[in-house]
Nucleic acid binder design. Structure first.
Length: 298
DNA sequence: CAGTGTCAAGGTGGA
DNA sequence: TCCACCTTGACACTG
């Protein structure tokens, strides 16, 4: 079990996801921004190691506008050494990396343009992980997509499109149960058709639930995640107290997290903490898990 | 310099 | 058919 937080470290003083407005795009600005972002990612990973956070999600903004037509820079070659260095650090310390393209990445959209743009976005994410030299345990997570008025057809389209993906992308792609449209059971049905692994999100499962008790979910996950793709990746979050459905809590509820660990005893998996205060709650989580035999110690 | 409108990209659901 | 809403952070403009 490894614990981490997504993208942003609030105390380190830099961001690995700096970007700028498209209107201000220039070759130099892009190069400078990527350079700063990679430098900051290096700082973040070192800080994570020092604090026992061996799981990290890299911001999709690490290379701004990477999949946009405006970007004609060969950033892959230009920053190959920097990415390779970061990857070596990750591998040396047995860290795990994920990326999460945002809501515009839709494999199953009936709109061909949306699909094509999504392919370019996924190719960019694959580039980052490939340049880092990471194995198939480094994953790209997306949601299944929209319903478009006909869920079975939308699922069929996902399956068809997935089968046609370049292996370079499909080897890393992973679906996550979302909070409105596709439940864990939906994801399992898709998995059974094409073998794509599932990232389990506990908060989404609470809001958009297909009924499986936690232990049933984890039994399934450990069947799915074996071999080269590693142990299950999961997202853990808690609802914002008194907030609207789906909002994430400001800080971790240590009691709830402790219960979650107890409830899942016997299953090993990695936890991405989607809590607003990021590394602060991650530190609390590591402390809570300190006596858990599953936690990986550096 | 603080405050705030807006940002590449989509989809759903209510009017 | 149109519009608000989803969620997040931060860029960059305004005064």
């Amino acid at each position: 079990m490894r614990i981490g937080y997504p993208c942003i470290n609030r105390s380190i003083g830099c961001s690995a996801g700096r970007t700028f407005r498209l209107a201000n795009y220039s070759f130099q600005r892009l190069i400078d921004t990527i350079d700063l972002n990679l430098g900051c990612l290096d700082e973040i990973l070192h800080d994570n190691l020092a604090n026992g956070f061996l799981f990290h999600r890299i911001s999709s903004d690490i290379v701004p506008f990477a999949s946009h037509p405006v970007c004609t820079v060969d950033w892959q070659s230009r920053f190959a050494d920097a990415f390779a260095g970061l990857g070596e650090f990750v591998r040396t310390h047995k860290m795990r990396i994920s990326m999460h393209p945002d809501q515009f990445t839709l494999i199953n959209s009936p709109n061909r343009d949306v699909f094509e743009r999504s392919l370019r976005e996924l190719a960019y994410h694959s580039d980052v992980l490939d340049l880092m030299g990471l194995g198939a345990d480094a994953r790209i997570q997306i949601h299944v997509g929209g319903i478009y008025g006909d869920k079975p057809a939308a699922i069929d389209r996902f399956v068809r499109r997935y089968k046609g993906l370049d292996e370079r992308i499909s080897r890393r792609l992973t679906i996550e149960n979302d909070d409105r449209l596709y439940t864990f059971a939906d994801c399992v049905r898709i998995h059974e058709r094409v073998g794509i692994p599932i990232i389990f999100d506990n908060l989404h499962h609470g809001i958009n639930c297909s009924g499986e008790p936690l232990l049933e979910v984890f039994a399934k996950l450990s069947q799915i995640w074996t071999g080269r793709i590693g142990i299950p990746m999961t997202d853990y979050s808690e609802p914002l107290p008194g907030g609207r459905s789906g909002r994430h809590a400001e800080q971790i509820d240590t009691g709830a997290f402790h219960r979650y660990l107890s409830d899942t005893a016997g299953y090993d998996f990695d936890i991405m903490l989607e809590i607003k205060d990021k590394e602060k709650s991650a530190a609390a989580a590591v402390q809570i898990a300190a006596e858990d035999p599953r936690l990986v110690i550096m």
